[in-house]
């Protein structure tokens, strides 16, 4: 199963490291990353593979969201199907 992580927040040092750190910790494989700076907002989208994750998807989503809050970032982890079904016929 694949998921998508989105991270939005004020740009600062170490965001990518933090997010990829939490992925590594729970056995989540990062497949693809795109990032851009819109004005001074940092915006990163990560495609992840959670087949080999060592915790359930919902728990991982919760942990990523919490970590985001601690660092003033808005982090969402959602199932890839949500985007596929909405934007692809």
């Amino acid at each position: 199963m694949k998921g998508i992580i989105t991270v939005i927040g004020k740009d600062k040092v170490g965001i990518l490291a933090q997010i990829s750190g939490i992925c590594a910790e729970y056995g989540v494989n990062v497949v693809e990353v795109t990032q851009s700076i819109l004005q001074d907002m940092f915006c990163m989208i990560m495609l992840i593979d959670i087949e080999k994750a060592n915790i359930p998807f919902t728990e991982f989503a919760e942990k990523a969201k919490k970590m985001g809050e601690e660092h003033c970032l808005t982090v969402h982890v959602m199932h890839e199907d949500v985007f596929n079904s909405m934007h692809r016929i």
Binding site: S36, H76, R88
Partner: peptide, 16 residues
């Protein structure tokens, strides 16, 4: 991968 704009649109629909 689905493009950035589409992903942000979906997130925005749910959040905002």
């Amino acid at each position: 991968m689905i493009n950035t704009r589409d992903i942000l649109e979906t997130i925005n629909m749910i959040q905002e």
